[in-house]
């Protein structure tokens, strides 16, 4: 058998190789290893500790306003929550669809859910399936709401703080938010509930989709 194979002409050897690979391909079926994950645990753990993958709500707001955002914002919540309110320019991808979505491995992704938990889970899934730039919105949509949409300040604060607050106020108004003065703990809760009611009709901000416009690559 071995001699027989060795004595074949080069084209026949090639044909045999192609035939073998083809049959093996038939057995494999679908090559997209979408449900298979290989993890470099140490690398992942290290980048998890470093916190470099987290972006604060304020930084994000700043980027959006300055039109400097080169991330794709990924809203991990349910479709219902997504249609009610989301950060302008986001796409809605549910956790179970993450690896079958249109998200590209070379896109910079900024994940957010209501809090940090779902985005941290999604971060792990994406990171371990070869997605390159995956980031988390620190504190999720809750901190976006608290810091950007409905920032509150205490009644008595220093001059420095109030200058800071004026800035935040501008940002907040940009996103159709409602900055307010915090009077006591109890009303702050009330403020959040009312803020849901006035969940603002958001100004449509068009964000350049992912990467810059591609020139045709074809022939």
């Amino acid at each position: 058998m071995k001699n027989y194979l060795l004595n074949l002409s080069t084209p026949k050897k090639l044909a045999a190789l192609a035939g073998f690979l083809a049959i093996f391909a038939l057995v494999i079926g679908n090559s997209g290893s979408k449900n298979k994950i290989s993890v470099n645990a140490k690398e992942l753990a290290l980048s998890a500790i470093k916190d470099q993958d987290k972006i604060s709500a304020m930084t994000l707001a700043d980027w959006i306003i300055k039109d400097k955002l080169d991330f794709t914002l990924v809203d991990l919540r349910s479709e219902k929550e997504f249609t009610e309110y989301t950060i302008p320019g986001s796409v809605n991808v549910r956790m179970e669809d993450l690896l079958n979505s249109d998200l590209k491995r070379n896109q910079k992704l900024l994940l957010f859910g209501n809090d940090d938990i779902s985005s941290a889970q999604a971060w792990f899934i994406l990171k371990s399936s070869g997605y390159d730039g995956v980031y988390i919105l620190n504190g999720g949509l809750n901190s976006w709401k608290n810091e950007i949409l409905y920032p509150k300040r205490n009644v008595n604060l220093t001059l420095e703080d109030s200058i800071k607050f004026e800035k935040i106020k501008q940002v907040s108004i940009h996103f159709g938010g409602n900055p307010q003065v915090r009077i006591s703990e109890s009303t702050s809760d009330a403020a959040i509930t009312t803020s849901h009611k006035i969940a603002p009709p958001l100004p449509k901000i068009t964000i350049p989709a992912g990467t810059n416009k591609k020139k045709k690559e074809g022939c």
Binding site: S31, K104, R105, C219
Partner: peptide, 20 residues
Amino acid sequence: LGLFYFTWIGWLDLSLVYTI
């Protein structure tokens, strides 16, 4: 065959290869 096996091993993201 190259594309198929590179994708299968997980070295290549086929969706990023441009097609007309």
